[in-house]
Design a protein around this nucleic acid. Sequence first.
DNA 1: GCAACGATGTCCT
DNA 2: GGACATCGTTGCT
Length: 189
Amino acid sequence: MPHLAHIDFHAPSAEVGPLLIGVTLLVDGVGGRIVEAEAYDREDPASHSFSGPTPRNASMFGEPGRAYVYRSYGIHWCLNLVCRESGHGAGVLIRALEPTHGLDIMRARRGVDDPRLLCSGPGRVGQALGIDRSFDGMRLDRPPFELVAREGEPDIATGPRIGISKALDVPWRFGMAGSRFLSKPFPRR
DNA sequence: GCAACGATGTCCT
DNA sequence: GGACATCGTTGCT
């Protein structure tokens, strides 16, 4: 039987990121296996927390083990898992899932049929899982959230993060090597 | 296949 | 006014 993942969200986001690859993320029973995630930190020019707390990023400075949900480009809802200690401002952005649970619900929310277009990108993950501002600050260890432990050690790919203009060399993008559900392929070596 | 672009909330200069 | 942790559509170098 599957069991709950025991992720230590007090660890730095760059350590939590790889640990999340292969973990199943569900919201109200809908979701899939995490195949891509990115770490962000307070001392990180690409991070929302870099310039200090604001009303938007307040959850990122709150307790670890909770959700930080933000609106991207005025349109998409994106989900982060808060890391380190309260007040630090670190998190892991969920960028892509391999859909495993509630495919029909996600198809209806997304308006597409192809499983590879359901959760391959942070905005798509938010839409497929029904995420909005009301999920901001919620605990990840109780409903509607559920994290199911992975089975075995996945082969982890790393590389530079996507869609940013600062700290382009920081290799804090993590993915399941060879997955067909990544938002983009990882650079070859 | 890929570059350009629009949509548009929140924060910064 | 401009940038941005994006995505879907358009139109053709």
